[in-house]
């Protein structure tokens, strides 16, 4: 019995490492093909629309509500200490340092990541990728690289938009519902928020999250078993692995960036 469990454990460990190796080789190929979509900008523009623009609505809606909720919750805590005027500081620091990159990454994994996996997986199962290979067109260049590049470009931009609308959402709640003076809201933020430490670090985080999520999404799509069940599993893996990777990396990056 123990031997059986050990064998199972060994098999799963080996297959996990083999998959990581496969994913790394895939990433290398993908990075080598990245200049191709720059030569064919129409491919990149189409993917930027599909991956970035079509994710915009969910990012804006989520950003507004998260900013509003954050303002309300901050007020509840701060008012006890008579520090409700620092509400903008709570909202902006939370959004810029953590919630902006993390939420955008998670929403991107759920909306665009799953769509990328499903699209590439379906192309595989309908032999479109094989068809391209037989036409002497490398699918890594034509299909994978434009999507990969579009994802890397989109996520930091979406994060910036998320941050902006969340701060505006918080502004609306603070000034219209909680009676905070507009000038105080902006001046507190201006005084305490550091451009490099807070905003740039947040954007760096989002770039890392975007890279990892898009890598997982395109790899899962390219590597999926070309059946409806295999495609479903690959899409689920993209969302689960992508989300977990974001949360794990966020901890590491926070520790590194803020010298904790």
């Amino acid at each position: 019995m123990i031997a059986h469990w050990l064998q199972l454990l060994g098999h799963r460990t080996l297959s996990r490492f083999s998959r990581i190796g496969k994913g790394s080789l895939f990433l290398m190929q993908c990075l080598l093909c990245l200049p191709y979509p720059l030569k064919k900008p129409q491919l990149l523009v189409r993917q930027l629309y599909s991956v970035g623009v079509q994710t915009l609505l969910i990012i804006i809606v989520a950003g507004v509500f998260i900013g509003m909720v954050l303002a309300l919750q901050s007020y509840i805590v701060l008012v006890d200490f008579g520090a409700e005027e620092s509400i903008s500081l709570m909202v902006s620091l939370s959004i810029l340092r953590e919630l902006g990159p993390v939420f955008t990454g998670l929403l991107f994994a759920g909306r665009a990541g799953s769509a990328l996996t499903a699209e590439i997986g379906l192309m595989k199962s309908t032999e479109q990728l094989s068809g391209m290979e037989m036409m002497a067109v490398n699918p890594m260049k034509y299909v994978i690289a434009p999507r990969f590049l579009a994802g890397i470009i989109s996520v930091p931009l979406l994060t910036l938009i998320f941050m902006a609308v969340a701060i505006l959402g918080g502004f609306f709640v603070a000034t219209e519902m909680l009676g905070i003076y507009e000038g105080v809201y902006w001046s507190q933020m201006q005084a305490k928020v550091d451009f490099y430490e807070d905003l740039v670090n947040g954007i760096i985080k989002s770039a890392v999250f975007g890279f990892v999520v898009v890598w997982i999404a395109v790899f899962e799509g390219h590597d999926c078993i070309p059946t409806s069940e295999g495609l479903g599993q690959a899409t689920t893996r993209t969302v689960v692995h992508g989300s977990l990777a974001i949360l794990g990396l966020d901890f590491i990056l926070t520790a590194l960036m803020f010298n904790v």
Binding site: M123, T126, E127, Q128, S130, G131, M132, M134
Partner: peptide, 8 residues
């Protein structure tokens, strides 16, 4: 290809 494999 059997399915045609047209780019959809």
């Amino acid at each position: 290809f059997q399915s045609g494999a047209l780019l959809t």
